[in-house]
Simulated scan of single mutants.
Amino acid sequence: MPSTRIETRAGWIGDRHAELVAAVQRALVEGIRIPERDRDIRIIEYPAHAFAPPDSKGERYTIVEISLFTGRSVDAKRRLYAALVSELSGFGIAASDLKVILHDVPRENWGLGGKSAVDMELGFKVEV
Rank of each mutant, 00 (worst) to 15 (best):
E65K: 07
W110P: 06
K99G: 00
E7S: 14
P53C: 01
V100G: 01
A50H: 12
Y46N: 14
G113D: 04
A10C: 01
G114R: 13
G123C: 01
F51M: 05
A27D: 00
P35E: 02
T4G: 04
E59I: 12
G111M: 13
A83H: 06
F69M: 14
P47M: 15
S67P: 00
E65M: 09
L68G: 03
Y81R: 08
D119R: 07
R5E: 15
D104A: 05
E59K: 13
V24H: 01
R5T: 13
V85H: 08
I32A: 00
K77S: 11
G111A: 13
V126D: 10
L98M: 07
I13S: 01
Y46R: 12
F69T: 03
A22I: 04
N109I: 06
D55S: 14
A48S: 12
E36M: 09
R9S: 12
F51C: 02
L68K: 12
E108K: 05
A23F: 01
G58D: 05
L102H: 14
V128C: 10
G90W: 06
A52W: 13
T70Q: 09
G58P: 10
I63G: 05
V118K: 13
R37Q: 14
R107K: 13
I34M: 03
G113Q: 03
S89F: 00
Y81E: 12
A76M: 09
G92Q: 11
R33K: 13
D38F: 10
A117N: 15
Q25I: 01
N109K: 05
A48T: 07
D97M: 08
V29N: 00
F124S: 10
S3R: 12
P47Q: 02
V118T: 14
S89W: 00
A52E: 12
T8N: 03
I32S: 03
Y61Q: 03
A94I: 00
A117V: 11
S3L: 15
D38G: 11
T4D: 06
L84S: 02
V105C: 09
I43H: 08
Y81T: 10
A52I: 09
W12H: 04
I66E: 05
L20D: 02
E87R: 15
I63M: 13
I44W: 08
P35M: 02
E65D: 11
D97T: 09
I93N: 03
